[in-house]
Amino acid sequence: MKDDKLGETTKALVDGGGVNSISPSLFTEVFDAFEEAVVITDASRRMVYVNSATERLFGYSKNALYGEEAKILYADENDFFEQGRIRFNTSSKIAAENYRVAYRRSDGEQFFGLTTGAVMRAKDGTVTGFIGIVRPARSTDQSLDTLQKIQNITSDVALSQSNKIERLLRVGLDHFGLEKAIVSRIVGSQYTIEYCVDLKGELEPLTTFDLSGTYCVHTLSAGKSVGFHFVAKSEIQNHPCYANFKLESYIGAPIWLSGQLYGTINFSSPSPVEPFCRDDHILVALLSDTVSYLLYKKQSEEEMKRLASIDGLTGLPNRRATMERLSELSA
């Protein structure tokens, strides 16, 4: 239905000769369900339609924006003019593409937005208007802060490898704004929670699931990071994990250890979130690599400890291991 209405709108733009010729109710029917802010202007870049997500994101009412230049949404009016020079002009030949720019809300707060901008043309090629689809981008400062936290945790010699993994899961939760973080161990079709942080306290280590009943089956199938920001409106809305746990958002990546699949690192929540961006996928892949390294260190330390307690000639527990065991029993 959504695709039909979008096609109807496109046809109206082409045949009708301009954005002003289209019924506002048709725009509303198509774009009001979008989670991203949708801004449509005429050829002079004055706003003729914004959806409800635009009101929520920018803090203006629709009536306050209609007839205004889109300049009111930009943090720096120089960016408004620069985007006009590059793409939002009647001689533009640029196809729809993504870019990042700073915007300003009605209360003065600034934020970076990931924007898809395109020219709208009539059948004869005349520019009739412009469309921009905007969603907030996580700030560079936040990404740098997250990277610094990862560095601080991995370099902290006072923490055990297990403690480092648990703290990394918390860092991921803070960054993505989600509730549940898991490092899983996957053997065959069995999915076991090895480490977890659950802000609601519902998950526990060593809990097992069938792999097919988890979103991680899609991560393994892809062989790379996978994210779903609103499962109810995604292609996996009929997945058993959604039916059983109603987890609306998920991002995860495979963990490889010594060239073999170990499991996954994943973050999820029962609430939808903003769509995951490229930086989010890079970060979850970095967390996967970091956890893989920590698991390797943990296994190496355990093996060194085991070898230190065995007599090299007899293969039996040596004097040190015997004394440690006696000390444990007498404690």
Results as ranks from 00 to 15, higher is better:
residue 164 K to Q: 15
residue 130 F to A: 00
residue 94 I to V: 03
residue 252 G to P: 06
residue 212 S to D: 14
residue 31 F to A: 04
residue 140 T to N: 12
residue 135 R to H: 06
residue 291 V to P: 00
residue 269 S to C: 00
residue 302 E to K: 13
residue 54 T to E: 08
residue 188 G to C: 08
residue 216 C to K: 05
residue 125 G to R: 11
residue 23 S to I: 06
residue 305 K to H: 10
residue 293 Y to S: 09
residue 86 I to F: 10
residue 242 Y to K: 06
residue 156 D to L: 03
residue 291 V to N: 01
residue 113 G to V: 06
residue 194 E to N: 08
residue 309 S to T: 11
residue 95 A to T: 11
residue 280 D to G: 02
residue 257 L to T: 02
residue 279 D to H: 09
residue 19 V to D: 01
residue 191 Y to T: 04
residue 28 T to H: 10
residue 291 V to W: 02
residue 81 F to T: 12
residue 9 T to K: 04
residue 164 K to M: 14
residue 46 R to E: 12
residue 162 S to E: 15
residue 272 P to K: 13
residue 21 S to Y: 02
residue 275 P to F: 03
residue 226 V to I: 09
residue 50 V to E: 04
residue 175 H to A: 02
residue 120 M to E: 13
residue 251 I to F: 03
residue 284 V to K: 04
residue 43 A to V: 13
residue 61 S to H: 09
residue 47 M to W: 08
residue 314 T to Y: 03
residue 68 E to W: 00
residue 204 E to S: 13
residue 112 F to C: 06
residue 152 N to P: 01
residue 49 Y to R: 00
residue 251 I to C: 10
residue 190 Q to E: 14
residue 71 K to P: 02
residue 188 G to P: 07
residue 300 S to F: 11
residue 198 D to I: 03
residue 179 E to A: 12
residue 33 A to I: 07
residue 42 D to E: 14
residue 251 I to Y: 02
residue 124 D to L: 01
residue 210 D to A: 12
residue 151 Q to H: 13
residue 248 E to K: 08
residue 147 L to M: 12
residue 200 K to N: 14
residue 203 L to A: 12
residue 184 S to L: 01
residue 250 Y to L: 09
residue 37 A to T: 13
residue 304 M to C: 11
residue 158 A to N: 13
residue 205 P to C: 07
residue 228 F to Y: 15
residue 107 D to R: 00
residue 101 V to T: 15
residue 272 P to A: 12
residue 285 A to R: 09
residue 30 V to W: 02
residue 316 L to W: 02
residue 290 T to D: 10
residue 217 V to C: 10
residue 128 T to G: 10
residue 25 S to G: 01
residue 227 G to E: 09
residue 229 H to W: 15
residue 57 L to H: 01
residue 313 L to G: 08
residue 34 F to L: 08
residue 287 L to D: 09
residue 36 E to M: 04
residue 330 S to L: 14
residue 301 E to A: 09
residue 276 F to V: 00
residue 107 D to L: 04
residue 186 I to T: 08
residue 267 F to Q: 13
residue 94 I to D: 07
residue 12 A to D: 11
residue 325 R to L: 13
residue 228 F to G: 00
residue 103 Y to L: 07
residue 69 E to M: 13
residue 28 T to N: 11
residue 282 I to S: 08
residue 325 R to M: 11
residue 216 C to T: 08
residue 18 G to E: 06
residue 100 R to S: 07
residue 281 H to D: 10
residue 7 G to E: 14
residue 63 N to Y: 08
residue 141 D to C: 05
residue 145 D to R: 07
residue 108 G to C: 05
